[in-house]
């Protein structure tokens, strides 16, 4: 595999450059949109808050949105790296194992069963749990058949479970039409209109996920060599796999609870990072955190600006899916399938 950055110094430099890029796009995301602000206004919003409209927009809309995008982008990218290492399949990603459909089904079920008296934050827990259960179910099913888990079985059982979950979602939404408007919020992947409270509520879980992923890097490097080799080198593979899956559930579930279904970040970013730093997870994970965050902020900024003359916003989940399809098909084509 051709790796662009070979020496340690280069890798560190690019990582720092990545952090700078992340900071720049975050600032851009706070300043640009339908209303534009200057950097001084943004700083004043925090140093000398005056309660003016622009200060309010910056603190309650732009800032939470940007932070959410960073957190979700990073988490999805790291979840992608973990899943790809576990399945030894470069096409595995959180969106393919049904977390999104599972979260939506759980939320709609909650609305129908308990009524809509719950605030958004409670709904997020439902989504979190739904995503987790679905991910475990898909992973379990894919490993169950003959020959253990193969890429194609993971993809297909993901598709099947997702189809089942969506049929539950549709059933409830058609039975009670008013759930439709409420649930729609989660059916569309977007970081728009997220509040700082929600971000604060979920971020601890994401942080634990990132930290866990960082601690797991050494084991992941061995897991990639195959179960037998990893066992031979002293890895407790069942423990490592279970931990990794748990981290994926935390990261992907937290992301979908915050931002709804945002597809393909978990495929695109790990690939780009592998292209930059190779297969060493000790570099791959931090790179994915930094560039995943920067990517989603960029995508959000773009999808905010592209239809601005029409006063419309493209939900960022749609934008990433479009970029993702264009990105992934050449990848599929390049691999040889018998």
């Amino acid at each position: 595999m051709n790796v662009i950055l070979s020496s340690r110094l280069q890798k560190t430099t690019v990582l720092i450059v990545g952090l700078v890029v992340l900071a720049v796009v975050m600032v851009a995301s706070i300043l640009f949109g339908i209303n534009r602000y200057s950097l001084t206004t943004a700083v004043e919003a925090y140093t000398q808050f005056s309660g003016s409209e622009e200060h309010l927009i910056i603190t309650t809309s732009r800032m939470p949105r940007t932070l959410t995008a960073v957190a979700v982008g990073s988490s999805l990218a790291v979840a992608g790296v973990l899943l790809q290492a576990l399945t030894r399949n470069p096409l595995a990603s959180p969106s393919l194992i049904g977390v999104n459909a599972g979260a939506a089904a759980a939320i709609v079920t909650t609305i129908v069963v308990f009524g809509s008296q719950f605030p958004v934050s409670q709904m997020m827990w439902a989504g979190f749990i739904g995503a987790g259960v679905t991910a475990l179910l898909v992973y379990g099913l894919a490993s169950a058949g003959r020959g253990g888990m193969t890429p194609i079985k993971l993809t297909l059982s993901g598709a099947a479970v997702a189809a089942f979950a969506s049929s539950v979602t549709s059933l409830f939404m058609l039975l009670q039409e008013k759930t439709m408007t409420e649930a729609f919020y989660w059916l569309v992947g977007s970081v728009e209109g997220r509040q700082l409270d929600h971000f604060v509520m979920i971020i601890p879980y994401l942080l634990v996920g990132w930290l866990g992923a960082m601690l797991l890097t050494g084991s992941l490097n061995l897991m990639v060599l195959g179960d037998d080799v990893a066992t031979g080198l002293g890895q407790k593979i069942i423990l490592v796999k279970a931990t990794a899956i748990l981290i994926v559930v935390l990261l992907a579930g937290g992301s979908v609870a915050l931002a709804g279904p945002i597809a393909f970040v978990g495929i695109i970013i790990p690939h780009l990072c592998r292209f930059l730093v190779g297969l060493d997870h000790r570099w791959l994970i931090p790179y994915s955190i930094v560039f995943g965050g920067a990517f989603l902020v960029c995508a959000d900024l773009l999808s905010r600006l592209v239809l601005m003359p029409l006063r419309l916003e493209v939900p960022v989940g749609v934008a990433t899916a479009m970029i993702g399809v264009a990105f992934i098909i050449p990848l599929v084509r390049r691999r040889a399938y018998a």
Binding site: L91, S95, L96, I152, T155, L156, A159, L187, V188, G189, A263, F264, P315, G317, V318, A321, M322, G324, V325, I328, I329, V332, R333
Partner: peptide, 16 residues
Amino acid sequence: ALVGVCISAGMGALTI
């Protein structure tokens, strides 16, 4: 099969 799943996902996003 893999290309089909990807393109379906893209079409799903368009639908949304």
